[in-house]
Design a protein around this nucleic acid. Structure first.
Lengths: 224, 224
DNA sequence: CTCTGCACTGTGGTATACCAATATGGTATC
DNA sequence: GATACCATATTGGTATACCACAGTGCAGAG
């Protein structure tokens, strides 16, 4: 997860919330923080913009806001992608691929830090997309998971939630190993809906705490 | 379709095949062609890279190759997106939206130039994605259609093919207006599979002519 | 005290200079 | 004649200078 490139370092700062959502970024202001000059910083910001982690606010740069409506839309879109991925995976993935997937599901159990759980979950879903055999499905899944990454911090705070995610991932992997597409798709949709529900509950519960840390959640679109 | 920005002008040159697939682009070499200096040209190339229209070849830039395997994968991915879009559209789109969609399907009949047919088809599918109500579905559809745009030139060369596309678009719009999701999804999948089949036949038939124009079609991946 | 206007500071956008790496082509040597 | 080597040109990567514009705050006039 640690990328040495400038783009990777700024990206990590955003995903870890070191750079707060909606925080204004100036190209010259980032020079001392990241030890680079404007040109590569500007290039990194443009790339981050295409990933949805940075936006323009007028002609200024800001870290992309967290947006409840966007989360809802992303989860809806993700259901389409994940359902397609499991269908393809059943018919195409090799036994080795599926066993690696189960391995990834289980690896989340050993180390129980929230951070590890978050990255393990990302790896699981990305591997699922990869073994679907369609690179564009994989790329789009990566994009969606990236946009959801910051909010998913909330879901991995409680050990109970991490355990539930682990069980659901195992259920998906097992259904795939059993070559049961209907069961795999059902387990996947249940996982997504459960995760989204828990996430929204966390947001409601933690809203005040988030605001105390300078993080606000918009409930409507911020665009114009 | 005509974008005054530098990015839009280079993009148009690529999509119209004025800049041939696999052609090498040098940042300084593009300065006189587009009347801009390296910095904005470089920014445009980076953005085009994120859209899949330009790639790196080592540290050089090239116009993205046409790739048969990639077309196949894109059509497979597109089936997922379009099927989801029609399902959402049936349950969400307003009557006005659906009638505008039918309008778009019919507008392809009046002006029969290949170029117009191509852009009208793009508009139809983008509008369908828009009225699905999920902006990420729409954005991803736009990305897929962009990547397919250059190869779709082949499909709109014959008047017969243009007429068939028009009929299929009308069938989709009518099924949506009839609020029949199963018929709409079926019509969509038939349209995609028909289009892809015709496209592959065109490619096989026109391969030599394409090569004579300096355009080659790769059948395997070109990456790394 | 208030309001207007101006100077200043900071912003992104652009042009350009410099660098290291690499590809190229010619020349000298064997 | 073939090959090895070196000078040179061209490339992308980076740093920086300059520009126009917008936001801000202070000062002066009323």
């Amino acid at each position: 997860m640690t990328d040495q490139s400038l783009h990777g370092r700024i990206r990590a700062a955003i995903l870890s919330l070191d750079l707060a959502p909606e925080q204004r970024l100036s190209e010259r202001g980032l020079e001392p923080d990241f030890g680079a000059s404007r040109t590569p910083i500007r290039a990194a910001l443009m790339r981050l913009e295409s990933e949805g982690l940075v936006q323009r606010d007028g002609k200024n740069w800001i870290v992309a806001p967290l947006n409840l409506e966007e989360i809802r839309v992303l989860y809806e879109f993700r259901e389409i992608l994940e359902a397609a991925a499991v269908r393809f995976a059943v018919s195409r993935a090799s036994r080795d691929d599926l066993e690696e997937l189960r391995e990834l599901a289980n690896s989340a159990e050993a180390d129980e830090t929230p951070e590890h759980s978050l990255d393990a979950g990302t790896s699981f879903h990305l591997e699922l997309a990869r073994i679907s055999g369609n690179p564009f499905l994989e790329d789009t899944m990566r994009s969606v998971l990236t946009r959801l990454y910051r909010t998913r911090w909330l879901d991995v705070q409680s050990a109970e939630s991490r355990g539930r995610v682990h069980n659901e991932h195992s259920a998906i992997a097992n259904a795939l190993l059993a070559a049961d597409p209907a069961a795999a798709e059902l387990a996947t949709l249940e996982h997504l809906r459960g995760t989204e529900t828990r996430l929204e509950q966390s947001i409601t519960a933690d809203r005040l705490r988030l605001r105390a840390n300078g993080i606000s959640l918009r409930s409507t679109a911020t665009a114009q």
